[in-house]
Design a protein around this nucleic acid. Structure first.
Length: 510
RNA sequence: GCCCCCAUCGUCUAGUGGCCUAGGACGCCGGCCUUUCAAGCCGGUAGCACGGAUUCGAAUUCCGUUGGGGGCACCA
């Protein structure tokens, strides 16, 4: 039973944010969160803010921020306000918002919501251990809760380290999740939590709320690992006298072992996937369609389609597992639906980025790691060849990188290595087939696909060799491989001179 | 331990009390087609976590159990 969309309750403009912390790379789960936020806002004509949660300075890096920006751009997402896009709700990095937090802390403290606590971390840890040992639940006992302000001030003045805690009121805190309906939590399971550390910095739960309030966020869309934080945050909203936004906690993305997606799961970053030959828009759509009903016609959806046809509020509630097989199938499907010229374009772009043109003969598709800076621009001839190869491989590749296994041989002279040579030697009538084909091709009038095909098709009867053997010999002799694009097309694309040269070279090895 | 969230084929899911002998897709297996490999088409494999209750009737509602996940941080 799904509750009716809460958006109806919001008459004003929708405003959402994506707030990654740049402590590492943005993985697919984060990308998915960003996507849903984006689609939701655009769908409601709202604005999308990118905020960088870098409160943990020691673990935040500029490279991580750059990577996040790259990932989002690859999926086609743009933001109305955020890094590189100043607006009325800035600044957009938490490290630049200290004055805002300070001001709100002062307000909360003046209103009696916050109190200084002098309990040391060790002391609290010990209490926690003891509670654990006695199988009791533990929340902060409030030893400092009733300290008189006079005493507190005296101890602060005396230089004792202190933190600021939020005074959690009695009662029950509840909210309505857009996906899950009502969620209710008893406040005494929460316990007064720390809001300002002894070094004066602010804690996550306070920072998000202050940011969301000041940025006028109306809908918070994030992973369901935040559900248990929500009541604390709501308490802060109320203490601040600010309107509480709507919440939508989306199901998490797991690896094949049903654990939250992490580096251990192989390629879990958009850049890794695109380096391996997945198309970013396919990954984007795949991510979007997890937790929801999916049909093939959706594979080719554009971002605009997503915006007006995809409803985040229809999402399922349980975590889903990232399935590389299905993604691969989608990618193949998408490639087949591209028009050949577009595929050629993608192939050139991909092979350039992947450094293929530097050494086509030895190039190997990346497995998991992102491509390092190895881009090599194609020579005009290579680029032309790539575009010409595109329609020949379109039905056969699943990933852009698969083109190499199928067609790299076009890019370098014939190499018949041991295995292939053995096979060729074992193919009935190989030598005469190759010679006859070479002779036939050089004598061919004009150079058309139809002519090449007619010639090759005539060979079996002419030579009295089984068709299978003829085709096998030619395929091997032309490419050194057993798997290639269509035989006629390949010979034709090689051009008369190169085709003949290869077949003759192969024949001479027998 | 306490609190919260979740639970249909291996995976993504349809299913809102009778239309369910549980449907589709990926994967896997087999067949057809075929110059290889694919693609395509056809067929097969496999699931309501368990136990109670409500009901004429439950995958669907309620309660418990189990399992998974998250939180209980001077992490975000």
């Amino acid at each position: 039973m799904r509750d009716s969309p809460t958006s109806a309750a919001f008459s004003g403009a929708v405003c959402v944010r994506f707030a990654p912390s740049p402590t590492g790379y943005l993985h697919l789960g984060g990308a998915r969160t960003a996507l849903y936020n984006y689609v939701f806002t655009r769908r409601h004509g709202g604005i999308f803010i990118l905020r960088i949660e870098d409160t943990d300075l020691s673990r935040s890096t500029d490279e991580a921020i750059a990577q996040i920006v790259t990932s989002l751009s690859e999926m086609g997402l743009d933001w109305d306000e955020g890094p590189g896009k100043p607006g009325s709700h800035g600044p957009y990095r938490q490290t630049e918002r200290h004055h805002i937090y300070a001001e709100h802390v002062r307000r909360l403290r003046d209103d009696g919501w916050l109190y200084p606590c002098f309990c040391s971390a060790e002391q609290l840890e010990a209490e926690r251990q003891r509670a654990q040992a006695e199988k009791r639940s533990w929340v902060y006992g409030g030893a400092c809760r009733e300290l008189s302000s006079g005493e507190a001030e005296r101890r602060i003045a005396a230089g004792e380290p202190w933190t600021l805690r939020f005074r959690v009121p009695d009662g029950v805190t509840s909210f309505h999740d857009m996906l899950r309906g009502p969620v209710e939590v008893d406040n005494d399971t929460i316990g007064d939590f720390i809001v300002q550390r002894s070094d004066g910095t602010i804690t996550y739960n306070l920072a998000v709320v202050v940011d969301d309030v000041t940025m006028e966020i109306t809908h918070v869309i994030r992973g369901d690992d935040h559900i248990s934080n929500t009541p604390k945050q709501i308490l802060i909203y109320r203490a601040l006298g600010a309107p509480v936004p709507s919440f939508l906690h989306m199901p998490l993305l797991f690896g094949t072992d049903k654990k939250k997606l992490s580096k251990r799961h192989g390629a879990t970053q958009l850049e890794q996937l695109t380096a391996m030959g997945y198309l970013p828009e396919v990954v984007r759509n795949y991510l979007c369609f997890l937790s929801t009903e999916f049909d093939e016609s959706m594979i080719g959806w554009t971002l605009a389609d997503l915006v007006d046809r995809f409803d985040v509020e229809q999402l399922g509630r349980s975590a889903s597992i990232f399935d590389p097989d299905k993604l691969r199938w989608m990618n193949a499907r998408y490639i087949r639906e591209l028009d050949a010229a577009a595929l050629g374009e993608r192939l050139v772009e991909y092979l350039t980025r992947a450094g293929f043109y530097g050494d086509p003969q030895r190039w190997v598709a990346p497995d998991v790691a992102p491509i390092p800076g190895t881009a090599v621009a194609p020579e005009p001839r290579q680029e032309e060849l790539t575009r010409a190869v595109a329609p020949l491989v379109q039905e056969k590749i699943e990933l852009l990188s698969d083109v190499a296994g199928l067609a790299a041989w076009f890019f370098h002279p014939l190499r018949l290595h041991g295995d292939a040579l053995e096979r060729l030697r074992g193919t009935a009538g190989a030598r005469q087939t190759l010679q006859a084909a070479a002779a036939g091709l050089s004598a061919l009038e004009g150079w058309h696909l139809e002519g090449v095909e007619a010639l090759v098709r005539g060979l079996p009867t002419q030579l009295e060799v089984k068709p299978k053997a003829v085709f096998a010999a030619l395929r091997l002799g032309m490419s050194g491989q057993t798997v290639t694009p269509g035989l006629f097309e390949s010979l034709w694309l090689l051009g008369r001179e190169d085709a003949v040269r290869r077949l003759e070279a192969a024949a001479s090895l027998l």
